[in-house]
């Protein structure tokens, strides 16, 4: 039952990724890969959360896997990695926590009672911190594989160039 829940959430995460992909006007040939990437990212995030990891670390894991696969995809489908990775991680963007933080901030402007104020303040700070750290972990998760692989790709292009000049 929990497995089914995780699977259906992952499939819908992929659909959300497609929505953003269309909004960002991606080439038609990368739509299906983006759905698959979004679903894989969601699957990893929800599975990690099921095994008791926090949402920040789970999002980081999902984003890192998306980052790695999107580099492989970039070679296969001839588009830069960010075309794959950005729409696929957007379903993981902590909109819900950011939304709760904003509501909390709005509520803080009008609460008089000290106890209620403290309670709202605690919840707001908690939601805000979660939103911020999830966002940072998503950005780093997507950027890290590219930073690591970059050395390799520069080497490859230099090699190709050297071969060309020798041949020419």
């Amino acid at each position: 039952m929990i497995l089914l829940d995780i699977l259906s959430k992952s499939v819908w995460a992929g659909i959300a990724a497609i929505g953003f992909a269309i909004l960002f006007n991606v080439p038609r040939r990368v739509i299906f890969p983006i759905w698959a990437l979004g679903a894989i990212g969601g699957l990893i995030k929800f599975t990690a959360m099921y095994f008791g990891y926090g949402i920040v670390f789970a999002s980081f894991l999902g984003a890192t896997v998306i980052g790695i696969i999107s580099i492989k995809m970039a070679h296969m489908r001839k588009s830069p990695p960010l075309v794959f990775s950005i729409p696929s991680v957007i379903p993981m963007v902590p909109g819900f926590f950011a939304y709760n933080m904003m509501l909390g901030l709005i509520a803080l402007t009008s609460i008089e009672n000290t106890e209620a104020y403290l309670q709202t303040l605690i919840e707001t700070v908690n939601n805000g911190a979660k939103a911020m750290f999830i966002l940072i972990s998503l950005g780093i998760g997507v950027a890290l594989p590219m930073l690591i692989m970059r050395k390799e790709s520069i080497k490859k292009s230099k090699l190709a160039k050297a071969k060309k000049t020798v041949a020419g």
Partner: peptide
């Protein structure tokens, strides 16, 4: 209500910012 505004979330500026 919470999810109706999520399509506006500035994903590209924020992720590009971290990159």
């Amino acid at each position: 209500v919470a999810t109706s505004v999520l399509f506006l979330v500035p994903g590209v500026p924020l992720i590009n910012s971290v990159t």
